[in-house]
């Protein structure tokens, strides 16, 4: 289970509209299991913990970018 794979999956989600369309089917889920399954189906070896951690890191990066744009 790798956070690197989770990161790669999240990067792909941001740029792949088809993948996002599949994600919409999962929206509203109260845990990340369906997201993990989708990532695994796409060949990314990750679990809920690595996905959460990767998501938080990407989120932190987004905050930095947003703050820089505001300046």
């Amino acid at each position: 289970m790798s956070e690197k794979d989770a990161q790669a999956f999240l990067v792909r989600v941001e740029s792949d509209a088809d993948l996002r369309a599949q994600l919409i089917e999962l929206s509203g889920a109260l845990d990340l299991e369906p997201l993990v399954r989708l990532a695994m189906d796409k060949g990314y070896d990750c679990d809920e913990s690595s996905l959460r951690s990767a998501w938080r890191k990407r989120r932190r990066l987004k905050e930095v970018v947003a703050a820089a744009k505001r300046r």
């Binding site: 929206s27 938080r56 987004k62």
Partner: peptide
């Protein structure tokens, strides 16, 4: 932990 539904919401949004 951030709610899973909110994480999915963010990922599904078509723009930033």
């Amino acid at each position: 932990e951030w709610p899973s539904s909110c994480i999915l919401d963010e990922l599904c949004h078509p723009g930033p």
